[in-house]
């Protein structure tokens, strides 16, 4: 599974990354977590708000910090 977090480095973006890392670690999910901070790259994904979470090329959420339950649902836990 490929998880991409888009965020230029605002507080919410860092929080999102932390949460996802935590869920992945705790549940031993087989996934790569990548954070994209470059504005140009973020723009090319066509999302508006940051942070955004993209899992296997599918945009899961934009513009807000996801809830742990949501993250678990995306990862199929």
């Amino acid at each position: 599974m490929e998880i991409i977090i888009l965020g230029p480095g605002c507080a919410k973006c860092n929080k999102t990354e932390k949460l996802i890392q935590q869920v992945v670690k705790e549940n031993k999910v087989d996934a790569t977590v990548e954070k994209v901070t470059d504005m140009m790259k973020i723009a090319s994904y066509g999302v508006f708000g940051t942070p955004s979470v993209i899992i296997d090329k599918e945009v899961k959420c934009t513009g807000k910090v996801p809830k742990i339950d949501d993250i678990k649902a995306w990862l199929g836990i």
Binding site: C10, K12, C13, M39, A43, V47, F48, G49, T50, G63
Partner: peptide, 14 residues
């Protein structure tokens, strides 16, 4: 519209 100035750039491009 919910908006935070930190996402002004992706929003502008969008």
């Amino acid at each position: 519209t919910p908006f935070c100035s930190c996402s002004a750039v992706p929003l502008f491009i969008g």
